[in-house]
Amino acid sequence: MILIVSLCKEKMHELEFVRPIEKIVSSTGNEVVVCGYDKIKNSDLKNASGVILSGTSLDDFEYLENAKNFLWLKNFKKPVLGICAGMQAIGLVFSGRLVDDKYIGLSEINFKETFLGLNGKNKVYFLHNKSIMLPEGFAQFDNGNFPMAFKHKTKKIYGVLFHPEVYNHELLKEFVKTSQKT
């Protein structure tokens, strides 16, 4: 089972930031459970083979005011993928620093090495007002000023600032495969 953690304050934003992820993960034949970031139970984490932290809308920073809800990430042993806001939440738990950095729309990333199946130049969709500085213990997979794709050096904890549920669905499918192998 893949657990999708919603970071959305507004329920209707889940149609935009959670459902598309759910649709792609379900298409791999995996069971999906969706849960709000402030409602995660230990049993959800125990039953999940991997966890995806969703993004949220540009104006929503509620998850940042409740960073304690993500402390479970510190000791979690299974694969985790944070998307945009989800990446920022991971960064905060691992002592990264948030910076103001806005980008809305399509752009391109050049991956230095393979990242969840993506190589070289890739078109990506961004929707963010903030970025996170590279936390200690993480490696950056692109050449940006702030990481657009990072991974923990020893754990399968991944973060992307772009939205793979819009462009690059294969990244999500690759993450599901990685979760099944663990």
């Binding site: 507004e10 209707m12 934003h13 149609l15 935009e16 459902r19 598309p20 649709k23 809308s57 540009l58 104006d59 806005k102 809305i104 729309g105 399509l106 969709y125 929707l127 007002n129 549920e165 819009v166 462009y167």
Partner: peptide, 27 residues
């Protein structure tokens, strides 16, 4: 349409409005 959605997102951001796309990426 990323073209349409991103332009409206920018306008909403500039005007301090929340943007909702409830049909986004829908099957």
């Amino acid at each position: 349409s990323v073209y349409q959605a991103s332009r409206i997102q920018r306008i909403c951001d500039e005007l301090g409005l929340v943007c909702f796309n409830p049909l986004w990426q829908k099957d």
